[in-house]
């Protein structure tokens, strides 16, 4: 352990008087490998073992494509809704003082704390044709429960805290003097918000969007109750994985999971690039 590094100038770690490096890093790596890395690489190995033709056949299967389209499409819509309303909520919580602000602020974390199955049955009951909200929408000809719109509603619930909690701390850090300077130079309030404040918030908003989107793509518990789960119409990709597993079709389940993971990582990569670009542009 304490042997000198082979090459001078390259050290695995900087020297320190604190003990326990070997123990804590060793345990952490062992636990991480056993719980996360081995199971995940098992997934990669299994999908590689499928062979390209089998993999491709599952990937372009109409039901798979539809499920992926629904998962990514509804997650995108829900994240977009959350960007608009989440930013307004964060603004109100940061900038305005009103009674009950602390409670409203704490409530934002409810989707993190409430089990997804509970959210699922509660939202379904609310938006069912005889539910409190479903009743009101029925005469307008809007059906939410058991349609793709229901999936969006569930994902808006799930994703809200990701946007608010990413944007809120950045809003709190905004220096009021910048706004005062802009105002004293004759900028209108609208100009200040769009030209001075928004550029500073944009990276956080993009991050919030991507977190809500990523979570929405993989979400299962809250969606399956409200979605109706009709193949080609309201069947999400995680549900299709479960269905394939129940049919003992491990190959298809693995392939869909691998596609989902690959798409999610690709998307996060793109968003990271957009973020670093916007940081350079506005930063």
């Amino acid at each position: 352990m304490n042997t000198a590094p082979a090459k001078a100038g390259w050290r695995f770690r900087q020297p320190s008087v604190i003990p326990g490096f070997g123990l804590t890093l060793g345990f952490s790596l062992a636990y991480l490998t056993l719980i996360i890395l081995i199971p995940l690489s098992g997934l990669v190995w299994r999908s590689a073992a499928l062979g390209w033709t089998d993999f491709w056949a599952i990937a372009v299967d109409r039901r798979t494509l539809n499920a992926l389209k629904i998962s990514f499409g509804t997650a995108f819509l829900a994240a977009a809704v959350n960007v608009v309303f989440g930013t307004i909520v964060a603004w109100v919580l940061v900038r305005y003082r009103f009674p009950g602000r602390r409670i409203a602020d704490a409530m934002v974390d409810l989707p993190f704390a409430l089990p997804t199955a509970v959210a699922g049955i509660a939202l379904t009951t609310l938006y069912a044709p005889n539910g409190w909200i479903g009743q009101l929408l029925m005469p307008l000809g809007i059906k939410v429960a058991y349609t793709p719109l229901g999936i969006v509603v569930a994902l808006v619930f799930i994703g809200l805290p990701f946007v608010v909690r990413t944007v809120q701390p950045i809003m709190e850090e905004i220096d009021k003097e910048v706004e005062e300077a802009a105002a004293s130079l004759g900028a209108s309030r609208f100009q200040i918000i769009t030209r001075v404040l928004f550029p500073g918030l944009a990276p956080a908003i993009v991050t919030g969007f991507s977190l809500a989107f990523a979570r929405g793509v993989g979400e299962y518990g809250s969606v399956i109750f409200i979605a109706g789960n009709l193949p080609f119409k309201s069947e999400i990709a995680p549900l299709l994985i479960v269905i394939r597993l129940e049919e003992y079709n491990y190959a298809a389940a693995t392939a869909i999971a691998a596609i989902m993971l690959a798409l999610s990582f690709l998307m996060l990569l793109v968003i990271n690039l957009v973020q670093s670009w916007s940081r350079k542009r506005y930063g």
Binding site: I36, I38, P39, L40, G42, L43, R46, A214, V217, G218, E219, Y220, G221, P238, L239, I241, V242, L245, Y250, A253, T254, A257, M260, L261, S264, F265, L268
Partner: peptide, 18 residues
Amino acid sequence: DLPFSVSPVISGLVYVLL
């Protein structure tokens, strides 16, 4: 942080495959 970006269903699936 990796488990946060994996769908819960996939988190279960990896153990089924194992």
